[in-house]
């Protein structure tokens, strides 16, 4: 009885130690990448390649999800506002919720689904196939050559994707509100313009930039430390690491979301 109690305490302790270790690794990993900004030639070619992967190739997904998100929130708000006879607030409500909250979060979720998971799996497989050892042996710095371009690309691409998401969401809201339910176009557009201020747009941009950074940071680190963090470094390890990366980046993203919102509202 007493023995099993000690065992439980021991196992809790070891879990806590592992979590702290893991957090420390994440921190040093990020610091290593950021330190490569100085004293190295900026890896422009690789960054463009990654902008293509993170940004351009995510656009179709962003446009479709943006459109439907806009349509569904317009539908919900219309149903609510019509009870108060305030449908002219529809544009403002749609734009406000998209620009401040839904746009950054939904776009980031799409990026996690498409880019974060793929990146973590790719980096994990590179680890498995000794490609990082190979880079080390060729005296090529993997933080500079592999990690930095991906992080920079995310910091640039995710805010742009979010803006596209917002615009298409507003378009989706226009379709439902103005074209389907006959809200006046003037009310929809001017309502938006009168309610939204620069601070709202700025909040969206800050959030999405941070989200982009968080997603790629976590995904890269979880793949890179596959051999340390996973018991089974094979295919199962890659899938486990990818799951961890997706879950952790989503949770961390929402945490950052709360912090930024509470600081800026």
């Amino acid at each position: 009885m007493f023995n099993s109690l000690t065992l439980t305490i021991e196992s809790i302790g070891s879990v806590v130690v592992r979590r702290i270790e893991s957090a420390g690794r994440l921190g040093t990993f990020l610091a290593q990448i950021v330190s490569r900004l100085w004293g190295h030639k900026f890896p422009l070619g690789e960054t463009i390649k990654q902008l293509h992967f993170v940004g351009a190739r995510t656009v179709p997904l962003i446009l479709i999800s943006g459109l439907f998100t806009g349509m569904v929130i317009a539908l919900q708000f219309y149903d609510t506002l019509i009870r108060f006879g305030s449908v002219e607030l529809l544009g403002a409500a749609v734009a406000m919720s998209l620009i401040r909250e839904l746009g950054p979060v939904m776009a980031a979720l799409m990026v996690i689904a498409r880019v974060g998971s793929a990146t973590c799996a790719e980096i994990g497989i590179m680890r498995n196939e000794q490609q990082f050892d190979a880079l080390d042996c060729m005296a090529i710095d993997s933080y500079h050559y592999i990690m930095l371009p991906r992080l920079i690309a995310a910091l640039i691409a995710v805010p742009l994707l979010t803006a596209l998401f917002d615009v298409f969401g507003i378009g989706g809201g226009y379709i439902v509100g103005v074209l389907i339910h006959g809200v006046s176009e003037g009310a929809y557009l001017t309502g938006m313009a009168d309610t939204i201020v620069w601070n709202d747009v700025l909040m969206g941009l800050i959030k999405s930039t941070l989200f982009g950074g968080v997603i790629l940071w976590i995904s890269l680190a979880k793949g890179f430390y596959l051999h340390i963090e996973q018991k089974n470094a094979g295919a199962e390890g890659v899938s486990q690491a990818t799951t961890n990366a997706v879950v952790l980046s989503a949770v961390l993203m929402l945490f950052v979301d709360y912090i930024v919102s509470s600081l800026m509202i």
Binding site: E129, Q130, A134, D136, C137
Partner: peptide, 16 residues
């Protein structure tokens, strides 16, 4: 390391 070459078991070529 620039004076050393290493050939890994599976080649360890970059798949991209």
């Amino acid at each position: 390391r620039q004076k050393m070459g290493v050939a890994f078991q599976g080649g360890a070529l970059f798949s991209s």
